[in-house]
């Protein structure tokens, strides 16, 4: 069913289609999952917002945040959304070479972002903000760490998909698989858009 139903949303949902809505199972499941993830990240963000000013010991956020640095890594993640969408559009055109190219670039940008986060965390720890130092520390590392794990999972998915596409072992519709990973990737990006503003730019 995935062969036919990728972009038939405009057609009426007559019985000729395989699914009742004319949408594919996989894409519906992905959007539901993302709807659910909103409440997951919402909870972590709210915890951070509640606790960000509570610094019983160790450094205060405004003292350790390095806005220029984080701006650059935010920009990197934002641009990875562009390369991701280009990968999706190449995959829909059936252009394997470009798909692979853009997926590679996206994975690289994602990895760069993770590298930046590792650097940021080590710097903060050196400056005295441990995981247990204060409520701010715990909630900061948990929120951004959770996001980082999501990005890492995304990078692994990108790399595996590329490998699988190259070996021709993909099960299901290639363009759809790339599109689904794209949705996940953009979601991780929009979470960062929120984190960047609420955590970094608005001082507590």
């Amino acid at each position: 069913m995935a062969e036919t139903a990728t972009h038939t949303a405009d057609h009426s949902t007559e019985h000729g289609h395989e699914t009742s809505t004319g949408l594919t199972n996989n894409k519906l499941a992905m959007w539901l999952f993302l709807g659910s993830e909103c409440l997951l990240f919402g909870g972590l963000i709210s915890t951070y917002m509640l606790y960000r000013g509570r610094v019983s010991s160790g450094p205060h956020p405004s003292r350790i945040f390095d806005i220029p640095f984080t701006s650059v890594s935010s920009f990197v993640l934002l641009m990875s959304s562009l390369t991701m969408v280009l990968a999706v559009s190449s995959a829909q055109r059936g252009d394997d070479r470009r798909t692979n190219l853009w997926l590679t670039v996206t994975a690289l940008l994602g990895a760069t972002f993770i590298g930046g986060q590792v650097y940021e965390f080590t710097t903060f720890i050196r400056e005295g903000l441990g995981f247990s130092t204060s409520l701010f520390g715990s909630s900061f590392y948990t929120l951004t760490g959770f996001h980082g794990v999501h990005v890492s999972v995304g990078v692994i998915m990108l790399l595996s998909t590329m490998g699988i596409i190259r070996k021709g072992k993909i099960t299901g519709n290639k363009a759809e698989v790339v599109e689904l990973i794209g949705l996940y990737w953009h979601f991780v990006d929009i979470v960062w858009i929120i984190i960047f503003t609420l955590v970094y730019l608005i001082p507590s």
């Binding site: 995981f131 247990s132 409520l135």
Partner: peptide, 19 residues
């Protein structure tokens, strides 16, 4: 996902020293 957040916070506190 909401109780997952709660459980994760508690787990991080119990096993990894979060506050």
């Amino acid at each position: 996902p909401v109780i997952t957040v709660a459980l994760v916070l508690l787990m991080l506190q119990r096993s990894y020293g979060a506050t």
